[in-house]
């Protein structure tokens, strides 16, 4: 190639890369601006603080906001002990390396399965077989299975970063294995658990397919405990419902805008937690 040709080639490649970058950035910005522009004007206090009523011709998403919070709480309360427990067993106790590898691999696959399959299985197992019907509890249990790999893996990674010298120090003082794990190892991996939780909350917030199957689409205002046994839709399910079944695009876009802001906040929280703990570790 002559030097002129080479220069032309270099500029072409550069131009292509710039275009790709600009296009990606523009898409994100356009999407955010579009959703915000269509959604934010319809976010009113009435929408946020009431429930939908055909009698008063009123749209309200308070039940959906509460259902989202309930289902996140219920799922986390169940998934944290399971995920952390599994991680502690696999990293600290399990002797059989091949079994550990097999379980880790299975967890990896589990986190890649399309969520609608979880929904289908959740419906058959929790709603039908266990008789929970369409309820937030059935939905939460389905989400537990979906998020178990996330919590388990992030806790495991974090456990591996706890220095071996801490464990040696505790053993050297005559502490048993469980005491060492409880007092020295687990406090050192709180960051991993929190990161896993934040990722899970993000995932739960965005989950619709699995919940359509298991938690139903009702919009009733319930307390935490009655909600567990009653059907109820979260924000994402409500978004689908209002847009697809009722053609209420104003409400749908308002929900979309709220969800976008929430997922932005969750991302910020994840970054903040990671930084906070890194600083503490560096101390």
């Amino acid at each position: 190639m002559t030097s002129k040709k080479r220069t032309a080639f270099r500029w072409t490649v550069r131009l292509l890369m710039w275009t790709a970058t600009a296009l990606t950035a523009a898409l994100v910005v356009a999407l955010v601006v579009y959703v915000m522009a269509k959604g934010v004007p319809h976010i009113t206090w009435e929408l946020l603080s009431t429930e939908t009523s055909y009698l008063y011709d009123r749209k309200g998403i308070l039940p959906n906001i509460l259902n989202t919070i309930y289902i996140i709480l219920a799922a986390l309360v169940l998934v944290i002990p399971l995920g952390v427990g599994a991680a502690v067993y696999l990293t600290e106790y399990a002797k059989n390396k091949r079994l550990v590898a097999a379980i880790e691999y299975a967890a990896e696959i589990l986190s890649g399965i399309p969520s609608i399959i979880y929904g289908l299985v959740g419906m058959l197992v929790f709603s039908e077989f266990l008789g929970l019907g369409s309820s937030l509890l059935a939905g939460a249990l389905t989400l537990v299975i979906m998020n178990l790999p996330t919590i388990m893996r992030s806790t495991q990674e974090s456990l591996k970063t706890v220095p071996q010298s801490y464990r040696e120090g505790a053993f050297g003082l005559g502490a048993g294995k469980w005491r060492t794990i409880r007092t020295v190892v687990l406090p050192g991996c709180v960051d991993g658990v929190i990161t896993g939780c934040i990722l899970s909350v993000g995932r739960i917030l965005g989950e619709s397919a699995a919940l359509l199957f298991t938690a139903g689409t009702a919009n009733n205002l319930n307390g935490l405990f009655e909600a567990m046994t009653a059907p109820g839709s979260t924000l994402t399910v409500a978004l689908y419902y209002y847009a697809k079944e009722e053609g209420e695009f104003e409400v749908a876009f308002a929900i979309a805008a709220i969800l976008m802001v929430l997922s932005l906040l969750i991302n910020l929280a994840a970054t903040w937690v990671t930084r906070h703990f890194q600083r503490r570790k560096a101390l």
Binding site: P163, S165, Y166, G169, A170, F171, G174, V184, P187, K281
Partner: peptide, 20 residues
Amino acid sequence: VNQLRKEVGMVFQKPNPFPM
């Protein structure tokens, strides 16, 4: 073993205080 380590203590090569 825990009783043994109570009576036979150990100090390690690299200082390893717990993060507390």
